[in-house]
Amino acid sequence: MLTWLDANLVSILNGLAIGSLLFILAVGLSLVFGMMDVLNLAHGALFLAGAYLGHLFVGQQAGWASFAGALGVAAVIGALAGGGLSVMTEPLAHRSHLDQALLTLGVALVVAELLSIAFGNDVQSVAAPPGLDGSTVVLGSTYPVYRLVLIGIGALLAVAVHVVIERTRLGLLVRAAVADREMVSALGVDERRVKAAVFGIGSALAMVAGVLGGPIYGARPGLDSTVLILALVVVVIGGLGSVRGALIGALVIGQVESLGRVLLADLASFVLFGALALVLVLRPQGLFGARAQART
């Protein structure tokens, strides 16, 4: 057992780092879909925009100021973009999921195309802040410091989101809206505002995740759809509208993507969707589906 752990420690840590990033990305996607029935396919494009933003600010020689600046600007732009998407999908609120998803897909394609025009097709790297760019020894294996920090940030954000959702007034509103948003509006709450707020926070987190992921994945065309698919799988596995589900789903998919690929190297490309299919067969509503039933 110990030798197994030793041999796979790096993969497990990598899985945790991927899981951290996926949680930050997926929690917004899950809440917006669980609450407002809007599947935001532009979520991956926001992540990529965040990654390029990190590249612009930080580039090759990173400083703490530029990295923090990138995070701050990503949060602001992300929140504004989320508010914009919320307004854009409003006229389609009484149409099918597909109509709204197609609109956000259109936005995603436009954004991705603009980014590739602006930054080209090469991989743009983003350096980790000074002091975090080296390696350290964890239980006998060398491991990049930045990834450990990312695991810590993911854990902190998970706690923060949990506290907001479970303990604050906004969180109560969000949980009620996930369960039945019409009944929230019938109390006198303008649901468009709640939607814009959650959309904004979710999109800000997606762009922040892009900046944070920069030092690991860099920024390149196609990254948007890769992370979008991973985030969608997390949401489906975790269950719509559930923060806990997004966390567990992200941790599972992180390990599937890292450890799973190492242990089942021959099946690497099937592991992700195998895990998805398994959950869908056993628990179609996801592990922690927060919605009692589908709305008509």
Binding site: L172, R175, A176, A179, D180, E182, M183, S185, A186, L187, G188, V189, D190, E191, A290, A292
Partner: peptide
Amino acid sequence: PHRMARAGCAVVPQGRRLWAPL
């Protein structure tokens, strides 16, 4: 609906429609 509510209307819908997990 929020404007109806602010105008002083409230609804107890068929099937109750409580927020089950809350």
